[in-house]
Structure formats: C-alpha cells, structure tokens
Nucleic acid binder design. Structure first.
Lengths: 339, 339
DNA sequence: TTGACTAATGTAAGCGCTTACATATACATG
DNA sequence: CATGTATATGTAAGCGCTTACATTAGTCAA
C-alpha cells in the first residue's frame, strides 16, 4: 500500500492554531460558537496544512452521516439517471449527500450494494421497485435504516412508495392501441424477474386485452436487456414469427428506438404497417423519425418527491407518505390504426 | 434525528459467539486464520444479529478504504456513464469499490466533490480532463491521493492520463469535411471554459481549417449545454446567421441528434443541404435517420485502462503510465459533399 | 469591586473497528 | 516427557473525530 504522506489531522490543526481539538471541531461545525479571532487562527491553520476532515471518523463520532443512499438498476437508462439527479439536488437542499450505486438489474448485486451503503452509514435508502428478498428488508430493519421505494406506486404494497402505477399506465396506452383495431400485439420488455415495474406493465396490457375480449395468445412477449440494439434484435424476432404483431409496445423508449431502427432497416413502414410505442418519453422520443408515441413518466418530479419524503423521514422520523405521480400519453407519429 | 435501533457491533457479535473481538474481526477478514468451529460460531452470531461492519470505523482502524473515487461531468452523458461502468467493473476485479460523483460541468461543484471523496477516504481519484485550479492539485498532493486524468491524452501535459487526443480526433474529421468542399463550417460545442476536451476539439478544427487556407471567420462556434433540445436550438441559431454553414460539427452525438431533428423540422435536407457530424458514436448514432457520421470514442476501453492504471498505482505505488487510445471516424449518412 | 451571569475554550471519554503483541493450546520430535 | 514449533485466540492500544461536562474569561448591574 502507500500512505507515504501523512494527512493532517484535527490534532495537527489544533496544535498549529494553538487551541484544543474541541475548538477546532466547533470552529468547523458551529462557527458561531467560536470567537472571531480564534476562527481566523483555526482557518489559517486549516488552509496552511491543507486539512480535510476524515469522514469515517466524523461519522463514527457524530453517529450520523447525513448521507442517503440510492440504488438504481442502471445509469445507462437516462430516466433513472435524470430522476436521480433531481433526487440528489433536492436532498442537497436538505443538507444530505447522496451516494449512488447501480445493480445492472442483478438482485445479487443489489443486495451487495445495499449492504455496502448501509455499512457506509447511509441514514436512509432509496430503492427501485418493491420486489426483493424479504431477508433484505429484515436486515434493513435491524439496521434501523429507513427505506423508500420509488418508480412504482402500488396500493396493494405494504411499504410506502413514491412513483406511478405501472400497470395502469401501460393499460391506458394498450387501450388506445386496441381501440385502433390492433389485435395482434407484442411487448418488448425488460427482464421480468425481480422487476415489478416490468411485470406490472405486462399485466397492464394483459388486462386491457382481456377486457377487450382478446385472447392471451394474441400477445407476444419478448424479454431483453436495455439498449437500442437489443430493441432492434427483439423487433426482428417478432417480425419473423408466424403472426407478426401490428403493434409493438416497448418497455422503454430506448427499446422502441431500436425497434424503429430495425423497422426502417427491414423497410417496414411505421405506423402504416406496424405501430411502435415507447415508454418514458425521453428527449430521444421526439428526435426519432417518425417521432415516437410514448408514455411520459414525470421522472424529475418523482425524484424530487422521493427526496422530500425520505429527508423528512430521516430528519424528523415522520412516517413516509406514499405519493402517486401521474403518467401521460404522448401521441406522436408511430401509432396508427390498422389498415 | 432517529437512532431508535442500536445497530449490532463487533462487540455484540463477539459476546454472542463467546470469543474476542479480534477473533471476530479475523473471522470476517481473514477466515483462514480462524478455526472452523470458531468460524461457525461467529458466522451464526453475525447472521442472528444482522451484523454489518461499520465502514467508517473499519477505514479508520485499517487506514485503508479500497475505495476509488471517480468524478465525471454528468451521468446524463451516456459516454461517461458507460466509460465509468467499465472503469468500475475493472476496479471490482482488483478489489476496489468505486464512488461516483458528478459535477454538472461546474468547476466549483467539482472541487466540492473532490474534497468530499477525499474525506471519504478514496485511495485514488479519476478525474476528467486536466484543466482545473492548481490549488486542487496541491490539495490532493498534501492528502497523498493519487490522481489519474482521463478522457484526454495530451503529450504536453505533465500529469499522466489515459485518453485520446481530442484535437487530433476532431482535426481528422474536419479534414474530411473540408476535403468535401465545405468552406462555411460550424461547431456546436459544449461550454469551453474549464473544459480542455471541448477546447481541444475546437483547436482541432481551427488547425485543419488554417492548414487548408481557410480564414477563421469561416468558422462559427456556438456553445451550449448537453442535450438534444440544446443541439436543436443551436442548429436553429446557426441557420439564421448571414452565412449559414454547410457543415455542422458537433461536440457530441446528442447535440448532433438535436441538430438533425431541427434540420428535419426546418425541412433542411441532410446531407444534401447541410452535413451534420457527431462525436462519440453512441448507439444512438446508428438509430437516427439518416444515420449519423461521427467519431468513435473507445469509452469502455478507456474506462478499463484507466482502472488498471489507477489500481496498480494505488496498490503497488507504481508510477502511472500514460496510455493513448485511438478514435476512429465512422462514416454513415450525414456527411456529404457540397453541392 | 463584586457577584452572577453568559460566552469561549479545554478536558477527556468514547464511537466501532484493526492489529501488534502476548498468551494459550495442540501436536510432533528427540 | 520435555521441548520446540505452529496454530488459534485474547489483550489492549489506538485510528480521527465529536460532545458532555468542567473550567476560565468576559460582561454588566448593583
């Protein structure tokens, strides 16, 4: 290992400034409790030594970190990245630092990350979706770390959450699709296991279809990873089946963009021959040609509300209030009637 | 505050298992130094108590965190996000955890983040680009934290770096543009201040132009933020000038996608009336219509090499070896000759 | 000047771990 | 069996901070 240089400590600063360590600590944390002249001496010493407090020591002594952890599936998904950005910004206003980790959609990795963030002293945790090993929830409870679930809002769930109703949102757009005459429908979904958002969206479509009297066999589902190429491949697959769909719903805009690209490559006209629908409403959705019909997810607002809820829980131990956000259909140019 | 629950400590585990704290510690960190029967007792106690080690205490006692910090401008930029992903994966192989922070391109925020990561005990730091307040470099030196600069490779720089030559890459594509007859050229760039990558790319174009005998007045530069909409607005602006460019180079693919979108909205044919060139080669670049001509940046390889360099520096105190990665022109459908 | 405050500073006890060192136990050797 | 060696565990001293409590300095009314 290294450790060639010895980082200056509070002690060093105290010695240099000719005061006690307690005074230095106060000067740094509660300046108004310290006389002006003393502050100056201390600040000079801090500057000259290039002192920087040790977070670990501080956390241990103060028994508090003012840190909130957030674990999302992937940074690659712009929607998570942006929602988290808003979460972070709001928390900063409340005096919290955010520690971010991602799981690549692996529940195993998620568990590790949860443990790691708890070990690092997170005062609270933001998690995406409800579905995970009950043991983890037990662990968090024994550690006394409050958790807020986001990206979903499920009245049936016992834990508080800030998010939207994935099933209802998907059902709404599915209804539109069906009312335009589509009967042969497909869903390009993220992996369904350990992903209650994806599962809920699937259920939304199934619901809409069964209410419209359509048989389950009219729905084809392909699961894949997040990515444009993945969407393209999935679309390909669907078009090669015996009864190719006339409408392809996608679990997110990125998959939809991939599908759209492949449609163009296959010379399939959208929406004349097949409709393609996204989910999320990224900037991207307006930039494709034709522009993507999709479902707007208010990600920034979601991040912000999650931050507010979690901050008040951690600070004042106020019970977390669940909060439902509304999605909105955005009609652009990739959804059309069956011709 | 809260603290209703008392997290179990090493002490608690030791008591429950009927051994000393030292044994518990060893059992957790160096299991092969501990007898099998003892391991069992300890592991049971750990499980029953839901024990999780306190990172801060551990770091303080061990004087090592096995944590590497990485500070990037923004997660919103997929290229950073992906490069970082590779960085992280590689570091994990070497036994390091990565702590990520982003700055929103603010040098002030960056300074905070650097201090925060150092405080959190980062054994090393990854930073993007060379350009920052010298005081920060001094601070890092007094703290004994090794730094690796990435995303740039500049032979003139004193600090080691793992990246590519931004100026050369941009010059290369600019040469192509010029050789296709373009004389009136524009650059939609990220903000140039405190951004040596963006500045270098600008210089690359200027170089190419002056070598081709073009006057500086033939180049229009508009600085903007990262985003599709921002690219669209910038493109708009350029088209409204007295001498609109016939080729628009963009600092990244996202800006280019925005420009492309606005071109379509304005009914300007690409590449017949104006050529649009991106930078980065995101998946996105293949998904637009027409597909984007751009410059491939080997972001994953960059992240990986950066991780290797930094890990060996931190572990063995080996001097960091600079490493140059090569970019590659990717010709698709948005660059054409002047008609 | 004094006493009664308040304001500023100091003292020292931990926070939860790791690890050098000391000790105990087990086993092989002569 | 005594002895030496290896293996397993225990003891206790910090790591760099915060903070309750004790002490001292400063201020002001009487």
């Amino acid at each position: 290992m290294k450790q060639n240089v010895n980082k200056p400590t509070l002690q060093d600063v105290a010695r240099k400034a000719g005061v006690s360590t307690a005074t230095v600590s106060r000067c740094l944390n509660f300046p108004d409790q310290v006389a002006g002249r003393t502050q100056e001496k201390v600040n000079n010493a801090v500057r000259e030594l290039g002192y920087s407090p040790d977070f670990g020591a501080k956390a241990m002594a103060a028994r508090r970190t003012n840190t909130i952890g957030a674990i999302i599936p992937t940074m690659a998904n712009a929607l998570f990245a942006r929602g988290l950005q808003a979460f972070q910004e709001e928390l900063q206003l409340h005096g919290f630092t955010t520690l971010v980790a991602s799981t690549s959609y692996s529940s195993e990795t998620e568990e590790q990350q949860i443990r790691s963030l708890v070990a690092r002293g997170a005062d609270g945790l933001l998690l995406i979706g409800h579905e995970r090993d009950p043991e983890i929830y037990r662990f968090l409870e024994t550690q006394g770390v409050p958790v807020l679930i986001s990206w979903v809002y499920d009245t049936a769930a016992t834990r508080p959450s800030v998010g939207f109703d994935n099933a209802a949102a998907m059902k709404e757009i599915a209804n539109e699709v069906i009312s335009l005459g589509h009967r042969q429908i497909a869903l390009i979904s993220a992996e369904l296991e350990f992903n209650d958002r994806a599962t809920a969206r699937l259920h939304g479509i199934q619901d809409a279809m069964s209410e419209a009297g359509l048989d389950a066999s009219n729905l084809q589902v392909v699961e894949t990873y997040y990515g444009i190429d993945e969407g393209a491949v999935a679309f390909d697959e669907l078009m090669k089946t015996a009864k190719p769909p006339t409408a392809v719903l996608c679990g997110n805009d990125v998959l939809a963009v991939g599908a759209l690209r492949r449609a163009r490559e296959l010379d399939i006209k959208v929406p004349e021959q097949v409709s393609i629908i996204g989910f999320d409403d990224l900037d991207l959705a307006r930039a494709t040609f034709p522009a993507l019909t999709t479902v707007l997810v208010p990600h920034r607002e979601m991040g912000k509300q999650a931050a507010i809820a979690l901050a008040s829980k951690v600070k004042d131990d106020a019970p977390i209030q669940s909060y439902e956000l509304k999605t909105k259909l955005v009609f652009r140019d990739t959804l059309g009637p069956v011709l």
